[in-house]
Design a protein around this nucleic acid. Sequence first.
DNA 1: GATGAATGAGCCTTCATTCAT
DNA 2: AATGAATGAAGGCTCATTCAT
Lengths: 222, 222, 222, 222
Amino acid sequence: MEINLIFAYFQWTAHYSLKRVQGTEMRRKQEKRSKILFAAIKVFAQKGFYNTKVADIAREAGVADGTIYLYFKNKDDILISIFEEKMDEILGLFKTRLKKAKNAREKLEIFFKTYFRLINDDQDLAEVFQVELRQSSKFLKDYHHQKFFDYLNIIGDIIKQGQSEKIFRQDLNPLIAKRIIFGAIDEVARQWILGAEREFSTDEACREVIKIIGKGLLQNRN
Amino acid sequence: MEINLIFAYFQWTAHYSLKRVQGTEMRRKQEKRSKILFAAIKVFAQKGFYNTKVADIAREAGVADGTIYLYFKNKDDILISIFEEKMDEILGLFKTRLKKAKNAREKLEIFFKTYFRLINDDQDLAEVFQVELRQSSKFLKDYHHQKFFDYLNIIGDIIKQGQSEKIFRQDLNPLIAKRIIFGAIDEVARQWILGAEREFSTDEACREVIKIIGKGLLQNRN
Amino acid sequence: MEINLIFAYFQWTAHYSLKRVQGTEMRRKQEKRSKILFAAIKVFAQKGFYNTKVADIAREAGVADGTIYLYFKNKDDILISIFEEKMDEILGLFKTRLKKAKNAREKLEIFFKTYFRLINDDQDLAEVFQVELRQSSKFLKDYHHQKFFDYLNIIGDIIKQGQSEKIFRQDLNPLIAKRIIFGAIDEVARQWILGAEREFSTDEACREVIKIIGKGLLQNRN
Amino acid sequence: MEINLIFAYFQWTAHYSLKRVQGTEMRRKQEKRSKILFAAIKVFAQKGFYNTKVADIAREAGVADGTIYLYFKNKDDILISIFEEKMDEILGLFKTRLKKAKNAREKLEIFFKTYFRLINDDQDLAEVFQVELRQSSKFLKDYHHQKFFDYLNIIGDIIKQGQSEKIFRQDLNPLIAKRIIFGAIDEVARQWILGAEREFSTDEACREVIKIIGKGLLQNRN
DNA sequence: GATGAATGAGCCTTCATTCAT
DNA sequence: AATGAATGAAGGCTCATTCAT
């Protein structure tokens, strides 16, 4: 509930915060950029990056084809921008939410809850992140996402903190462990998104992850 | 070592098993088909499905462009065939290997070991599975991966068996748990494959997975 | 020196002469029109007509893209206007300068000197004339360069005058001869303009032309 | 008459000479390439380079659009190839024809005759050379034609030879003189090509050039 | 069966021109 | 009058697929 409010607020600010002080025309420009980005997310989610025509995005956004190129260098740039800009929002949200936790175990739980809340609240975006950003060597090999590493390191840092707090096992390799965790939630989310019939809710998924991963990380005595 | 032998054998049989009884010309036909499939795996792994030209596959396979269409309906069909045929091999291998285990815990461990052995031994194939098939649910609308479900259900069955053997927690939802496990190993494998510098070995990865997931599934008292 | 002054005067008048009697706002309008024309000459000279974007001209002129269309019908119209208006200036200059000559031979020499002086003093304009207008007969199907014929006929008239003065050979075909002369000076000018390293001065070029063409036209006895 | 025969022979050899020893399929490949080049010359001559669509060339050549790209890198490459390949033929023809001359004066005359014969016999090609190759900064500035310099130097060499034979004036600057001559014949040719109504024949043009330029170069005493 | 030259539908991108402000 | 964001038609080029040899 609370998260919902935060998320709504965060969505609202996302479009405006950076430019709040600037004039109306600047705001309008940002609005159109956001409109295109939003349309692109929707269409990429539906058809996939390579099966999406720039004209599809334009139609969805309600602008002319050429207008896209006033805001983005090319089609690839749209996908990269989705990643960069949305990742900024997401990283910000995680940072804010994790501040409240008093130890690594709580942090892990908040992390999972925030993650599945995000997935639940913006499925198109989630799908683009889950599916489209994976598919092209452009984005996986050639293009190095500092922001993706930042994101992964949120998990890594929680693990390390948990180890120094003697809550998590000392023999874990955080490098591999963070991938295990990321992969686990990522795949569950993907299944939730792509699965035709919803076999489980994001809340159930979250609880399941906490059960398995949470327990898997703990010291034997706990 | 032992696994390697098994794997080598299995690779050899893969090309011939289905058609073993047929004549020489049929065998030659299979050889060319395999050559193309093998080339496709390599090129898809390098460049991704959409950035691979049919001509690239032809060149890699050492055949003419047109020849490909004597063995495959179209470019999509190559990807599907990779999946179908390799999945048959993989499913067969898992089945053989898992027979030896006496309980779910052992099965899980064998599953992980076999998985990372496969990844280690055929990286190109692994990459195609990891990256390129992610998008297939988009572009191959009609195509449903029964074999992928079979594969996933190997994990699901191990979980259920572990629950009935009272080794694994009773409150696990096998539907979600199998995704968690699949996602975890999948992501670790992806990182191992795509990461420029090898930060860990497949053996380390395997041990780490067993530590976290293995423990995460167990009953509290164990 | 003297010519320089004349040329400077002529440049100044070019912008105002036609509209000298009109009010200030009209003059301001002319100024902007000239600014655009001047910018267009510069950019056309640098990049060629087809490789020049209207936006390039606008930027060079320091006006908005749309402003150009307040002064010119379209991109073609800019090129035509350059030709028309600059040709008026040039024709006027030739007329003024040629008045002083007492015979065809002197006229020819003054013509050459004036020509190379113009080339020397406004290289951008020269380049547009040299290179870009070459193609105009293609793309401006309807447009006939009356002024170019006027210009050519200055040469033709000098030849005819020289023939009736018995200075030039009687067997010359003025129609062809004027093309020969125009082509000769045009090409020398082009080389001077486009050649990376200046291999000769316009003065040298002028003297060389007078030597060859001048002598070539003369009666045998002279 | 004689020239016509030579020219016809030379046209025939142009397509085959280089590949004469190779197999039929190579010859067929050359034929198609020539067909496209020939079509391009025709269409460029009619509409100009920038107003010609690749599809226009394809239609004229009777091939599909894509076929063009099997033989040429891109549209620019077609124009460059026209220049390069035709220039080879032309240079070869000049070399052959000029061998027969016994002094510079005769050489000059043969040069002019050959030139106007070429113009007369392949008007489309002449137009492309005259007009299209001039219009783009691509071809005039960025692209350096060694072959064009070779061509110009044929004239330059004749001038130098004439000077050492004491036939031509000693005070000529060959650098400028060759441009004067090239420009003169070039412009006459262009007028002959572009002029709607043929005001003169190429033979007349040739005679006129010999009269003016020929005489202009001679020593005073001759 | 094998070839690879040929095809042509399709799409990204550019840019001259318009028009609301 | 001036602006410049928006438009959308147009075209160069790619590449999966075909088919004559």
